[in-house]
């Protein structure tokens, strides 16, 4: 029977063995005496051994304490990640200004759902303020170029 650690160890073990297999196909370069697979194989070997040890240690551990459970809102975490994923994807199509505006508004509404017209006004204000301040500070003042949209050119 495996616990949380055991499954994590097993996942790492599998991944490192797969990667180890991939290193075997790497070609060397005449300019470097040892090939590009040499060091990865050491690292992956060590990782695999450690992961195996974790699996063994976990399966040997007799007592298992239940992890302390609080009221955790995993649904909110998942939607925050999903939202950020959409944001990252949108950046190169809609450009920084548009996607940031939408993202901040959506994230703000998700974290503190607005219940009235005032609430929505707050969401809009937060999104607009964040976008404008960040954009002006970087692109205008600090000369850090922000992504442009491929669709919008904006």
């Amino acid at each position: 029977m495996l616990g949380r650690d055991g499954w994590a160890g097993l996942a790492v073990l599998t991944a490192s063995l797969v990667l180890f297999g991939l290193t075997l196909g790497l070609e060397g370069n005449p300019m470097v005496p040892i090939g590009p697979g040499f060091y990865p194989r050491i690292v992956l070997g060590v990782t695999a051994v450690l992961a195996a040890a974790l699996v063994i240690a976990d399966s040997l551990a007799s007592k298992r304490r239940a992890p302390p459970r609080g009221a955790s809102d995993y649904g909110l975490v998942a939607s925050m990640f999903a939202l950020f994923g959409l944001y990252a994807g949108a950046l190169s199509f809609l450009g920084f200004r548009l996607s940031t505006l939408l993202y901040v508004a959506a994230a703000n509404a998700l974290l503190a759902p607005p219940r009235s017209a005032r609430g929505w006004a707050r969401v809009a204000l937060v999104a607009l303020l964040t976008t404008v301040v960040v954009y002006l500070a970087f692109e205008r003042y600090l000369l850090v170029l922000l992504p442009r949209g491929r669709w919008t050119g904006f």
């Binding site: 950020f84 944001y87 990252a88 950046l91 940031t100 993202y103 901040v104 994230a107 703000n108 974290l111 503190a112 937060v126 964040t130 976008t131 960040v134 970087f138 850090v144 922000l146």
Partner: peptide, 15 residues
Amino acid sequence: PKAALFPAVLVLCTV
């Protein structure tokens, strides 16, 4: 409010 702070922090992380 964290609801305003966290999105802004993540935007800055992205930048």
